[in-house]
Amino acid sequence: MKLREIAHSRTGDKGNTSNISLIAYSPDDYEKLKQSVTAEKVKAFFKDTVKGEVIRYELPAIGALNFVMRGALGGGVTRSLALDMHGKGLSSAMMDMDI
């Protein structure tokens, strides 16, 4: 199953740090997210992009997980040569993760 089948996402950035919020479609889906999408799995999925640590925060009241990924934007918006310097495409890429 692909992650996009049970959640949608949103990406933000601050300097060289990107964060991806995964929001479950239902409470049962939130439990699947908690079990299936770990910080380690996200770090491995983005191994070519994320150079720093990945921290997962749980937001059960809204059925979401937030992943803060340090060293993910090639030095930050003003320093990166990447086409997607804000990293907005990272959340779409993550939706293709197998869980």
Rank of each mutant, 00 (worst) to 15 (best):
S36R: 05
F67L: 06
G15K: 08
V37A: 05
D13E: 14
A93Q: 15
E31D: 01
D98K: 15
D98W: 07
Q35H: 06
S91D: 10
L90I: 07
M95G: 13
E53P: 02
E31K: 11
I99H: 00
S26E: 04
D29L: 05
Y30L: 10
D28Q: 10
N16M: 02
A44E: 05
G63M: 08
V54C: 03
R4S: 13
N19W: 01
L3K: 13
G52W: 12
V37K: 07
D28E: 14
N19R: 00
D29K: 09
D48H: 12
M94H: 11
Q35R: 09
H86V: 02
R4A: 09
G71M: 03
I23K: 06
I99Q: 00
A93K: 15
D96P: 04
L22H: 02
G89V: 12
E40R: 03
D13R: 06
T17P: 04
M1Q: 07
E53K: 14
R4V: 13
I62V: 15
I23T: 09
E40T: 15
S21H: 00
V54K: 04
K43D: 02
A61N: 09
V77T: 09
G75I: 08
H86R: 05
M85S: 08
N66G: 03
M69T: 12
G52Q: 12
K51M: 04
L65C: 10
P60F: 06
L59Y: 14
D48R: 11
E31W: 00
E53M: 01
F67V: 13
I20Q: 02
T78V: 13
T11H: 08
F46S: 07
D98Y: 10
K34P: 03
A64I: 10
Y25Q: 00
G63S: 07
G63F: 08
V37G: 12
R10C: 01
K43V: 06
L83Y: 06
R4Q: 10
D84R: 05
G15S: 05
D13P: 14
K41V: 10
D28F: 01
V54I: 07
T49Q: 10
D48V: 10
S9H: 12
P27T: 06
G89H: 08
V50E: 01
Y25N: 06
K2Q: 14
K34V: 07
R4W: 03
L90E: 04
K51Y: 00
Y25I: 06
L65D: 02
R4N: 11
M95P: 15
M97V: 15
S9K: 11
K2D: 11
H8F: 13
N16D: 15
D84Q: 08
E5S: 14
G63I: 09
E53W: 01
L33M: 11
T49D: 01
P60E: 04
N66T: 14
M94Y: 08
